[in-house]
Amino acid sequence: MRDDRDDPFGDIFDEIERMMSEMTGAAAGEAGAGDAGFGDETHVAVYEEGETLRLVADLPGVEKESIDLQCDGRTLTVSAAGASRRFDERVRLPVRVDEHSASASFNNGVLEVTFDALEPSADIDVE
C-alpha cells in the first residue's frame, strides 16, 4: 500500500487541481467568462460512420436561430449564443470532408451535423 505523505509530487498535483477548479468556476459563471467557449455542460462528439462523418454537440439554452456553422473541409467552427453565454468552438475533423455536402439539425438543444467524407489523398509514384 502506498503512503501519500511520501509523494514528492503531491503538492504540485494539488496546486494544479486548485488552479483547474478556479478556471472551471470562472467558466461556469464569473463575469467575463461568457466567451470562454464550450464549458463543462457542453459535450461534443465526432463519429466516423463509413463514408459519413457526424458531429453531435449539446448546446444547452441555445436557440436554433443563433447557431452559425462554418466548415473548410478540415475544421468545423460552431458559434452559438444562449441567454447567459456564448459558445465558440473549432472542431478539427478526423478526416477531410466535403463541406458542401453538410446537413445540420437542431432539436432539444442537440446539434447534429453530417458530412460526406472524402477519399484520402492519392499516393504518387516517382519514376
Rank of each mutant, 00 (worst) to 15 (best):
R90L: 06
E15K: 13
G82Q: 01
V97P: 04
V95G: 08
A26I: 11
G10M: 11
R5T: 12
D35I: 12
A31G: 14
F106S: 00
V56L: 06
E65M: 06
V126Y: 13
A122C: 09
F106R: 04
G109T: 05
H100S: 12
L93G: 00
V44D: 05
A117M: 13
G32S: 12
A31P: 14
T52P: 07
L111T: 08
I12S: 14
S121C: 15
R86Q: 05
A122R: 13
M19A: 14
A36W: 08
D123W: 12
G109L: 04
D123A: 15
R86T: 00
P120N: 12
I124H: 13
G50V: 06
T52L: 06
G61V: 00
A122Q: 11
S105L: 05
F87A: 03
E119L: 15
D40E: 12
R90A: 01
L118W: 08
D116A: 15
A117E: 12
G50N: 08
G29M: 06
E49M: 10
L76D: 02
S66W: 02
V44G: 07
G50R: 02
E49D: 10
G29T: 03
A33K: 05
E49R: 10
E15H: 05
V62S: 00
P94K: 03
G39T: 07
A26L: 05
V46S: 08
G73V: 01
V44H: 03
V91F: 03
A33H: 09
G32C: 10
G32H: 09
G82E: 04
I67C: 00
E119P: 15
